[in-house]
């Protein structure tokens, strides 16, 4: 078995298994913790609406915070949008999802994906520099932050190299790319990358609770 076979075979299978195992473990483990009933008289009965509202509106900052968070928000948007475009717009990735789920959709031009990857990598580097230099971020950051950054950065970087056939033989680059994806999948449930699922639960929880009280969301 060569490296690519390992990457496409056992590595991906087991990474996906760990991914699903970890995700369900973590979500179930959180959601099944105790919940106390709220007997207070609700100001608004439609708390679910607040959940939806917050899930949507918290995607951009309130006017009052815009100035202070503009840079961080933009940066976040750039690399998140970049990742989404790369992940869901690149033909080989669509094939990957199609192989897993049977669902496919039209792809974006490869050149556009390469450009996006470049921008995304640049944004991710700025993100890292900022995390290393900004006092608040430096204080807050732990292994999870840096490792999660690494496992996000690596697939984009290795993917770009693989598409460009740069630095090594393509099968090696592709194998490394797939292994980096496997690493991402394995780490995903256990680190902060879970925010991609938790964001809905967390925002939804606050949205529902606050809507009930009529509080600001």
């Amino acid at each position: 078995m060569d490296l690519l076979q390992f990457a496409r075979g056992p590595a991906l299978t087991w990474a996906a298994t760990v991914f699903m195992f970890g995700i369900t473990w973590r979500l179930v483990g959180i959601l099944l913790l105790k919940r106390s009933p709220d007997f207070s008289e609700a100001r608004n009965a439609t708390s679910w609406l607040g959940a939806v509202k917050l899930i949507i509106t918290r995607s951009w900052p309130r006017r009052e915070f815009r100035q202070r968070t503009l840079f961080a928000q933009s940066l976040g948007y750039i690399f998140h949008v970049g990742l989404v475009i790369i992940l869901f717009g690149f033909a080989p990735h669509i094939l990957f999802f199609k192989a897993l789920t049977g669902l496919g959709w039209p792809n974006l031009p490869s050149a556009f994906i390469q450009l996006t990857s470049g921008i995304t990598l640049a944004a991710l580097i700025v993100v890292l520099v900022r995390r290393l230099s900004h006092p608040v971020l430096r204080l807050l950051s732990n292994f999870d932050d840096y490792f999660s950054w690494l496992v996000t950065f690596t697939p984009v970087a290795t993917g770009m190299l693989a598409v460009a056939h740069f630095g090594a033989r393509y099968e090696t680059l592709l194998a490394i790319h797939l292994l980096s994806v496997a690493l991402l999948l394995v780490w995903f449930p256990f680190g902060k990358l879970m925010h991609s699922a938790l964001i809905f639960i967390s925002r939804g929880t606050t949205g529902a609770l606050f809507e009930r009280k009529g509080a600001s969301i």
Binding site: T17, M20, T24, W25, L95
Partner: peptide, 26 residues
């Protein structure tokens, strides 16, 4: 760019295992 084989049963087993682990942890 796709996995060599669709080992959905392994992944599904992992998912069920995850649910079980979550229930136990909670």
């Amino acid at each position: 760019s796709t996995p060599l084989a669709s080992n959905t049963h392994i992944i599904a087993a992992g998912t069920l295992g995850g649910i079980a682990a979550g229930v136990v942890a909670a």
